[in-house]
Structures are given as structure tokens and as C-alpha cells.
Amino acid sequence: MDIQNCKILSNEKIAKNTYKMVLECNTKSITKPGQFINITLQDFYLRRPISVCDYDANSITIIYKILGQGTKSMASLTPDIILNCMIGLGNGFDITKSDKNPIIIGGGVGVPPLYRLAKELVKIGISPKVLLGFNIGEEVFLANEFSALGCEVLVATADGSIGHKGFVTELLDGIEYDYFFTCGPLAMLKAVCNMTISDGQISLEERMGCGFGACMGCSIMTHSGAKRICKEGPVFEKKELIW
């Protein structure tokens, strides 16, 4: 973990209520896909924890949805504004545990951290199938970017305007896989854990106080005791979670 003042390089709308922000910063403290950054916003007391979608040596890309007053304020920020960020937080996805034929299942604003995960899997010669779920067609994002990595991408929307009409978990029918990675709304994660036949990793979220393990605000009970989503998580193995 480190704290840096990061310059906004861009901040653009990419889908309904969904924005992509690129921040200039040193990313040496990021060690795994699925980690997050914690951003100080003017006039808000607590930082905003946002997952890292992608990064290179000198920048981080985040994708966020307007869900409250904080993200609403973020959406209005313009390039060159400096944001104080804690970088390299949490314990991300462990790709070494993946089998040869994994699937990635993402729902809504849970999709962004799965992009870097897919990239890392592709780097070690694994091409995951990617199942993405959104409420409506206007909310779909990153599907083309996953395809560009060489991944087979299937999309489900609740309104049926793009891809399969229904839940993303319905796309699991008939798909062969031996491992999964997932991030999305809690109900979707629960359904994924119930329906999948393999081991896998799940990225959780919770309202956080500090984001670095100090306040115990985001604890969950697991089969291996109490864990902090911000510190031991946000990624947990399926076998650890109690639903």
C-alpha cells in the first residue's frame, strides 16, 4: 500500500451512469488483479474504494458507476485535477489457482476488476470464457475489450436488448469450465456459488471505513474465521464463504 497524489488524465462516460477514469500514478504497489484503490474526494470524509480495472507502470484505469453522492461527484471531475489515493489495497485474484479452462462471470459494476484478471490469465496462456450480465443494454461496457484479448464473451441483459435475455448465471448452461472467477452484486455471487460445479474465487464488496484493515468495518465470517474484505479480501475462495 502507498499513498499518492494522482493526476486525472481522463474521465469519460462509457455507458449509462458508468465512467472510466485514468489516473497518473506509480503502480509498483499493485501486485495482483482484483486489488483496489481508495480515493479522497473533496467534501467527503471517507475515501471511495474502487477496484482497479487495468494499469501500466504510470497509470491506473478505474471504471465506476454513479451509485451515490460520492461517485456522482467523481463523475464531474475534469482532467488535471489531483486526487489523493491509497494504492495497492486488498488481496486480489490468485491466478495460480486457476485450472486450464476457467470462466469469468461479471455483473454490472463488478465487471471492471475482471478485465485485468482476464489479461493476466491470457498472459500465462489461459483464455477464459467471459460471461457478463447487465440490467439493460445501455449499461453494457468492456465486452469488446474482453473480446480484444481473445476471450469468448457472452452477454446477458435483464431487458434482453443485448445478448441473452435474463440472468448472467443462465449463460452457465452447457458451458464447460473447471474453475471460475466472479465479481458483481451479492445476489449474483450467491447464485454463482450455488450453480457452479467447480472451485472458484469471488470478489466481495462492503461499505468500508478505512480500506486497509484498521477499522474492522467490512468484516465477514468465513469457514476460516473472521476476515476483513478490505485486507484478507476482497477476493475469497468459494470454499471459504458462508452464504
Binding site: E206, C215, M216
Partner: peptide, 23 residues
């Protein structure tokens, strides 16, 4: 003690509310 159920944290103007419950 595991403490209280989540959400345990809420933000306020210039402050926060916690309900960790002595985990």
C-alpha cells in the same frame, strides 16, 4: 466476538458512524 452485522459503516459530513461491535 465477531461483532455486529454489516453494513457497519456510514459516512457523515466531516465524520463517520461505525457499528463494529467490538470484533
Amino acid at each position: 466476538r465477531f461483532g455486529n452485522p454489516t453494513p457497519r459503516i456510514a459516512e457523515c459530513y466531516s465524520g463517520m458512524i461505525n457499528s463494529v461491535g467490538m470484533q
